[in-house]
Structure formats: C-alpha cells, structure tokens
Amino acid sequence: MIFSNHVLLRESLHAVLSTELDVTSVGGDDGEALTAAHKIRPDVIVVDLDGPGRHGLRTVRLLVAELPECAVVALTGRHTPHALRQALAAGARGFASREQPPAELVDLIRRVGRGERMIHPGTALATLAAMNNPLSARERDVLRLAARGMPSAAIAAELFLSEGTIRNYLSSVVRKLNCRNRLEAARLAEEAGWI
C-alpha cells in the first residue's frame, strides 16, 4: 500500500511498483490511511513523509500503533540523519529515497516485507559521517536554541550564560562549520544530524 497526499508521486509509484508488486495507493489524511490499511491489511505500507501537510511521521506512528503486523517504509526526499532518526523513532522499518531507482525501491520493500530493516544507502552513509561531529555539547545546545530563532539574550537566559559567551559559542560554530551565519550553521548541523 502507498500512502501520499502528493497525487503525481502516488500515482507514479503505483504505476512503477504495480509491475512488480500487488499495490494499492491511497491519498488523504491520517484517518483515510488507517481505514484503508485496516481494510486491506497490507504486508508493507509506504508512507510519503514529504507530501502536502507533511503529516507523514504522524501517519507512520498511527499505522505502527494500530497495525504492528504491517511493516512501514518511510519515503522521503530528505536524506539526512535527522530525517532517518525521526522515521525510525516513529516506528518505520524501512527508509527509502524518492530518488532510488525503481528496482532498488522494489527490493527494499520486498526485504522489509520479509522482516528486514532497510535504509537507503546514501542516508546510511551520511548518518555514519555525522558521527564525526565537530561541535562540543555546549555548542550544540546553543545552536539548537539559535535554530529555533531565539536571540542571543534569550539563549543566554535559557542556558544561564552571558550574552557574550553565547556570541562566542555561535562564532566558534560558524567558524568550525565554515558557514556565513548562525542560520546557515544551524541548517547544516541539522541536516548532518548534529543537533
């Protein structure tokens, strides 16, 4: 079963996968996905995380909770360690890329259906690379708050540090990550799975 609110993606996947697998595609909200899954009882459910509304992770959690016998594959265009961690924490047994060749996607779905955990190879490699995080624990704390849009004064109050110390940490982070500003550094660190 394929669940996506993105009609073109859903129908394209249906067309490609139906040549290899018995596939049903469903769009709509979480309730429609659950209703269809309860009715069909598929072995594997592919959930698009990037569709309109971006409720894919919530859908994964609901499906895993209500139909634990169905394996869920999270499908996304975001190949970051952060996206992988979120999908696995939601209960997905597979993590696939929108950019995978159809044969690889079919193989991944089949293997997840047999009980294996499968992760898109590029994302797995990026996750391993993320283990070389150059930021200290305190720099990560400061950057995490900065990523939420908090000004230096608010970060200082939150962490019980001076505003000057916060500016020093942010300068260090920007320098270490070779970025132009703290927003770019926060985006890079988030994609790398460091914050």
Rank of each mutant, 00 (worst) to 15 (best):
R10T: 07
L159P: 15
E11K: 07
T24G: 01
V173S: 05
S172I: 00
R148I: 01
L75K: 02
G31C: 00
L135G: 03
K176A: 09
G56D: 11
L125V: 14
E32C: 03
G31A: 13
E32I: 00
V173G: 11
M1D: 02
R175Y: 09
L135K: 04
V47I: 14
A74H: 03
A33H: 09
A154L: 14
A124L: 15
G94V: 11
L75Q: 09
I155P: 14
R114G: 06
M131F: 06
R175N: 08
A126Q: 07
L21D: 02
A37Q: 00
G28S: 11
L75P: 02
T127S: 12
C179P: 05
P134T: 02
I119E: 01
D48M: 06
T123A: 03
E139A: 05
G94Q: 09
N5Y: 03
I155Q: 12
V44Y: 01
L13Q: 02
P81N: 03
A137M: 08
L21M: 11
G91F: 02
V60L: 04
G113C: 08
G56Q: 09
G113P: 05
T76Q: 10
P102H: 10
R93D: 12
V174C: 07
V47Y: 09
K39N: 06
A65M: 06
L63M: 00
M1L: 14
L49T: 01
G53M: 01
E184Y: 06
R187M: 11
L21T: 09
I109T: 10
I195M: 04
D22C: 08
T19D: 00
L67C: 11
A37N: 00
C179A: 15
E191Y: 04
A147D: 10
A147S: 13
A129W: 08
D29Q: 08
M118V: 15
A147I: 04
